[in-house]
């Protein structure tokens, strides 16, 4: 079976229906992480799964819509990070397409890459909008310590993002990978398959 092209803009109905479901999964991931008092956000599982299933563009759209909806329903500050979420979707989609989800080891690497890139994208946003803080207690403590030692603002802010994003994204990608591996055939087929109708 031929896999469909990575950058196809011809979204199927299934892809459109996937987007709200993926946003919902993001939402519930965060909810359950709160309920279980886990020290992570785990709020991007839906974005990552959508990228794995339907490619980078759909993943990026999930990311953007996720933060728009979040902005509309809980905290407008999250509009700012729509770009980060979109980049997460893109990176996962591209790397998944290139085979970086074939085993656990590669998935960990993918998680690290996603975490780093998320931090790289978030840092200028953090600096531009709030002079470098993230609102995460541990990250901001590190930020403050580094500033106190007279390190440059951008480095401190980047470090702030890294300690927050990398562990979270590694866990997120790993969990998504586990779920993705266990998806039923009929779901994977629906997104994989651009097959033709064979006439008998």
């Amino acid at each position: 079976m031929k896999k469909k092209r990575m950058w196809s803009l011809q979204f199927s109905t299934a892809a459109f229906v996937l987007i709200p479901a993926a946003v919902g999964i993001n939402f519930l991931g965060k909810l359950f992480a709160d309920v279980l008092k886990l020290p992570l956000w785990i709020d991007a599982i839906g974005t990552v799964l959508a990228s794995m299933l339907a490619g980078p563009l759909v993943g990026a759209i999930v990311g953007v819509i996720n933060n728009i909806v979040y902005g509309f329903t809980t905290s407008p500050v999250s509009f700012v990070y729509a770009i980060t979420q979109a980049v997460i979707g893109l990176v996962v989609g591209i790397m998944a397409y290139k085979g970086w989800i074939s085993n656990v080891g590669k998935a960990v690497v993918l998680g690290l890459v996603v975490g780093f890139i998320a931090a790289i994208v978030s840092t200028p946003l953090n600096i531009m909008f709030w002079e470098g803080t993230t609102g995460n207690v541990w990250g901001d403590a590190l930020f403050a310590t580094m500033l106190a030692k007279d390190m440059p603002l951008w480095l401190a802010s980047f470090a702030d993002s890294i300690v927050v994003d990398v562990p979270d994204k590694v866990v997120t990608v790993l969990l998504s990978f586990l779920i993705f591996k266990g998806l039923p055939k009929n779901v994977k087929l629906m997104y994989d398959n651009q097959g033709e109708i064979e006439r008998l």
Binding site: S12, T13, A14, L36, I42, I45, L175, I179, G182, L183
Partner: peptide, 24 residues
């Protein structure tokens, strides 16, 4: 607590992804 995360999230994910077929 971490071990309970997948049993809780798993059913929602699988359901909602399977449901995308019917909703499509």
């Amino acid at each position: 607590r971490f071990k309970s995360f997948l049993p809780l999230l798993g059913p929602v994910v699988l359901n909602s992804l399977t449901e995308t077929r019917e909703r499509s």
